[in-house]
Nucleic acid binder design. Structure first.
Length: 776
DNA sequence: CATACCAAGGTTTTT
DNA sequence: CCTTGGTATG
């Protein structure tokens, strides 16, 4: 280790020498399997790396080893990941291993960025200019909408979003319009799908643009059409590494194959790393089969299993293994750990989502009292709507939290508008950008004029901006539209001149100011206008890191990530998908109920395959925990404002009994008092009378479906205080909230001695008022 | 062109 | 329940 840091400090050494690190120094601290994964450099390798087994360490050390042993130069290594974050981390860690800044890893990046680089060099082969723009999902949908409109289809029945999804599906499979078998057209608009796809591709060509899927599909076309080009890259990439191989789609698989397999039949030095148990992106085209099939695809492949887990305690691993064991067709791995003991999985059944949020908040506060940092705890939900309950609870309790995910910076309306202005400055022919901002702010240039404009553009085969110029010359525009167009085109021209001598940041500021876009938001009554103005400032800020407008625009197309200001002392709140690759000492997994998790839609759409993917998600969730994993489920859940009855998830049943500590277990309709933990500060109430007989929606549903039920709505039950104005105080005061297993939530209206009157929230259009006697 | 009203639909997410 | 996108209306 000492030699490493010394080396890092001796900045004067030439680069070649810097990567001359001795084997011992980087193999230090690796276990046997990891060493094998590092040292087996030749031939195909499948590194099966379970959760928390030091995958990134093995992967980065492998690259460091290839470099240090002079097997290849940095630019002869292709290393692809899915996210920019993963790529950045990989580069950083290799840099640390070989000492100092590492230059020349030109082909280390995301699938899309590497493919974009290749495409820029050979764009002409597929009919693009090297300066092509990369359009994002939003533009893609708008373009699809235009295609549907032009085809004269019913726009309500066939949406742009729908077409974009179908096209994406085809591109994920690496299929161009001519690759598709005719019956595939049935997927959209009664057999017109393929024609629409073709039309969409033609429009992209006219715009000199490519969408994300195109980056790979065009690469594949290039390699297939020009064997010399393929051979060139095949020779160049002497070592290839792929991270998260279980998440690759067909297009990515084909792309890799073309790069890995030359015509010579020799064995490629391709190392793929992944975990079939963590494949959770099937819904966006990932194929677990790619990893399951690897040994057949690349004969002679060496399979190396990383199974020693350095992250979690034995009970956590046992629980995760027991759950994932219910899946069929796994490659099979058994995680093990050196450590003994550890806290059992905590399982808690609660009355409803609010109680769940409350108990988790209490748990968090208790952990905090024990000295645990808030940022060491995370709540991982299945779907984002589940976050609301936690956010509300954390706000009332004053627990700071940070949400991971959500709309990203470069996808926000104002950012996209601003970028459209800049794109238009760079390229007046960018019609998508033109139509986006021509009337934003309002210039009296409405839909009608825009349609007129696009007709003329279409007829003359010119851009919208050129058509505008033409209409001015032929005097076809009148009044407001004329002045507006004239002023707009003049500004555009001026900005373009300015762009040549001005840096991106001041240019952006100038364009936004002079176009009136900033004022547009300043004068807006929109509640989010202030934050939008903030974002515009941030955008200008971000631009200041770039020297050219081109560089900046390229960056934003491929790196759409949020500025993640991870703060210490904040609880993490995110979806299970967002949690992949992360770990926390304490993990809360709420909402383990049938129809929520596993998600009903997933099961409806993909049947058993969907269920298995949901189960992998459960596996990912559990294995995020280092020390403590707390799973909970509710008997009633509010989904989009509707109350529904819930059953514990089947995954709860799959947990091994001997590894689980059951804190409370509600029946179908409520939490039974005797199963409540003794330290509960919430008193039980006995129902005395109600103003009317009442049937909850959940009970009604159960009756209609003939499901087993363990409570009768006409029989008295118990209620508990769920939100107290003075925690610890067991008396019930006016305004406090009460939960009852039949009537749901209510508010205390009157309280006299141990008798109180509760008004329940309106459910099913009936207001229920009930009186209670305190049991205590 | 701004506002009003209605119907639909509301997992997961990267590039 | 609440947001969104579309159409209808002044």
């Amino acid at each position: 280790m000492a030699s490493l840091s010394q080396r890092a400090m001796s900045g004067a050494a030439p680069k070649e020498h810097r990567i001359d690190v001795s084997e011992e120094s980087y193999l230090e601290g690796l276990n046997e399997a990891q060493r094998e994964a590092v040292l087996t450099t030749e031939g195909p390798v499948l590194m099966l790396a379970g959760a928390g087994t030091g995958k990134t360490k093995a992967l980065t050390t492998r690259i460091a080893h290839i470099l240090a042993s002079q097997r290849a130069k940095p630019w002869e290594i292709l290393a692809v990941t899915f996210t920019n974050k993963a790529a950045r981390e990989m580069k950083e860690r290799i840099g640390k291993l070989v000492g100092g800044e590492l230059e020349g890893l030109r082909w280390t990046g995301t699938f899309h960025s590497v493919a974009a680089n290749i495409l820029r060099r050979h764009a002409e082969i597929v009919g693009l200019k090297p300066s092509f723009t990369i359009i994002d999902t939003d533009d893609q949908i708008r373009l699809c909408k235009q295609v549907i409109e032009a085809a004269g289809l019913d726009e309500k029945r066939w949406t742009g979003r729908g077409l974009a999804a179908v096209i994406d599906g085809w591109k994920n499979k690496g299929q161009t319009p001519s690759d598709l078998p005719p019956h595939e057209a049935d997927l959209f608009a009664d057999g017109k799908g393929i024609a629409l796809y073709r039309e969409y591709q033609e429009r992209l060509m006219t715009l000199n643009a490519a969408d994300f899927g195109d980056l790979l599909v065009h690469n594949i076309s290039i390699f297939r059409r020009e064997p010399e080009v393929q051979a060139e890259y095949h020779r160049r990439f002497r070592y290839m590494l792929v991270d998260e191989y279980q998440d690759t789609n067909v297009a990515q698989y084909l792309w890799l194959r073309l790069l890995a397999k030359g015509g010579d039949g020799e064995v490629p030095n391709l190392c793929v790393v992944g975990d079939d148990d963590q494949s959770i992106y099937g819904w966006r085209g990932a194929e677990v089969e790619n990893i399951l099939r690897f040994e057949k695809d690349f004969p002679g492949a060496k399979v190396i299993r990383l199974e020693q887990n350095y992250r979690s305690t034995a009970p956590i691993l046992a629980a995760a293994s027991a759950v994932i064991d219910n899946n069929q067709g796994r490659l099979g791995k058994t995680l093990f750990t050196d450590q003994d003991g550890g806290e059992l999985i905590k399982l808690r059944g609660v009355w409803d989502g609010e109680e769940e949020a409350r108990t988790i908040a209490e748990d968090i506060e208790a952990e905090q009292m024990k000295g645990r940092s808030l940022s060491h705890m995370a709540i991982l939900v299945r779907a984002s709507f589940q976050m609301r309950a936690f956010e509300e609870r954390f706000n009332t309790n004053g627990i700071p939290y940070q949400v991971v995910g959500g709309p990203r910076f470069y996808e926000r309306e104002e950012t996209r508008d601003a970028l459209a202005y800049l794109r238009l400055v760079r390229n007046v022919a960018d019609d998508l950008s033109f139509s986006r901002i021509i009337n934003k702010p309002r210039r009296g240039f409405g839909d009608k004029t825009l349609t007129q404009l696009s007709v003329i553009a279409r007829q003359n085969g010119m851009s919208l901006a050129a058509a505008g110029q033409l209409m001015l010359e032929t005097n076809e525009l009148k009044g407001k539209a004329k002045t507006a167009m004239m002023a707009f085109l003049a500004s555009l021209e001026r900005w373009r001149e300015e762009a040549e001598k001005t840096a991106p940041a001041p240019l952006a500021e100038m364009v936004l100011e002079e176009s009136g876009y900033t004022d547009y938001w300043k004068n807006s009554k929109n509640v989010s206008a202030p934050s939008k103005l903030e974002n515009l400032k941030e955008l200008v800020n971000a631009a200041s890191e770039f020297e050219t407008l081109e560089g900046y625009l390229d960056h934003v197309s491929l790196v759409a990530e949020r500025t993640s200001d991870s703060e210490d002392g904040q609880v993490w709140l995110m979806t299970l998908h967002a949690a992949k690759g992360l770990e926390f000492p304490v993990v809360f997994l709420p909402g383990w109920e049938e129809e929520i998790f596993p998600s009903k839609r997933s099961l409806d759409e993909s049947g058993n395959a969907g269920l298995e993917e949901e189960r992998r998600l459960a596996y990912v969730g559990i294995t995020r925990a280092r020390e403590s994993c707390r799973i909970s489920f509710a008997a009633n859940r509010q989904v989009y404002g509707r109350w529904q009855n819930a059953l514990p998830s089947r995954f709860v049943d799959e947990l091994p009994e001997d590894q689980v500590d059951v804190l409370s277990e509600p029946g179908l309709y409520g939490v039974s008092a005797k199963e409540m933990p003794a330290q509960s500060r919430f008193a039980d109430l006995v129902l005395e009378e109600t103003s009317s007989r009442y049937e909850t929606p959940g009970w009604k549903r159960a009756r209609q479906h003939g499901r087993k039920r363990n409570a009768d709505p006409s029989i008295e039950g118990t209620a508990r205080l769920v939100a107290s104005s003075a925690p610890g105080d067991e008396t019930f005061c006016k305004g406090e909230r009460v939960s009852h297993k039949k009537f749901g939530l209510g508010t205390v209206m009157r309280s006299e001695g141990n008798k109180l009157e509760v008004e329940f929230d309106e459910v099913g259009n009936k207001k229920v008022i009930a009186s209670f006697l305190s049991a205590a």
